[in-house]
Design a protein around this nucleic acid. Sequence first.
DNA 1: ATCAAATACTTTGCATGCAAAGTATATTGC
DNA 2: GCAATATACTTTGCATGCAAAGTATTTGAT
Lengths: 151, 151
Amino acid sequence: MSYEQLKLKNQLCHRLYMASNSIVRAYREPLSELNITYPQYVVMMALWEQDKITIAELLEKTAIDGGAMTQILKKMADKQLLEIIKDAQDKRKRLVQLTSEGQALKKKAAHIPKQIGCKFNSIDSAQAQQLMQLLDLVVEDLSESKTIESF
Amino acid sequence: MSYEQLKLKNQLCHRLYMASNSIVRAYREPLSELNITYPQYVVMMALWEQDKITIAELLEKTAIDGGAMTQILKKMADKQLLEIIKDAQDKRKRLVQLTSEGQALKKKAAHIPKQIGCKFNSIDSAQAQQLMQLLDLVVEDLSESKTIESF
DNA sequence: ATCAAATACTTTGCATGCAAAGTATATTGC
DNA sequence: GCAATATACTTTGCATGCAAAGTATTTGAT
């Protein structure tokens, strides 16, 4: 056996690991000006798209871990970016709603996608689209439900 | 302004974030049988390729954070997988060397790449290669040295 | 109606990832 | 030679990511 597949150079997974870390690192500085982290930025983007949604919906949109989400939302509430409201109909649920400050942050964040995009000098728009589609397949293939079904 | 770029659906970065988390999650169970985590597995793969290298070289090969590496190596040394030896020539450096137990683990890990690979039902070999190449470009574009040069 | 099971979260414990500060050793410039 | 730098790590503090256990409600089956 050559163990060829155990070499880091041949591993898609290690590439993904490195790329994701690079991304989060790249966002750190731009986002520090908004006083938020990358996961918090992801939560904000979800809420800018659709406000006043349940935590479960937020989890689904962002793919952030549930346990982490509780902590993240608590910090964001402390920063006055959002409020967590109990759902009157179903008391188990909680709704997340942006404050005016949270809504206002959208304008200050509007330049960030372009700022990050500028760093991708080697990748054109078509390749980025292709990359997104392939990554969707990766996530889909690795999703829990799929794994359970196939065994 | 449409803020179209702030939508999660359009973000390559969020895809990468999700995909990377999925990967680490997918490795968790197979690796738990070896009693190691994904970053520890990455360290092992690096050492299986080339043993007795400095921590700096290990950092370069794995792209793991330096601060984290200290902790990771300490845990792996506790598990008798490797030893950290002071370099006689340059006392600042330290060499990482696998124990016989660490070397032996390679056989027990040999099935893992295939096991993970089986989950990728939607992606063929050519697409995986393409994905790797694109991810290399992402990492390259976001690398620190590049950023500094371009500004 | 009522108790078991399912939901929607929260909490806890452990392992990173990362920036920034600290330590020990080696190199350099003068 | 020696002080100023540069190296190679280590340590610290904070923010997740994740599994597993815990809590509060709501559904469902009988």
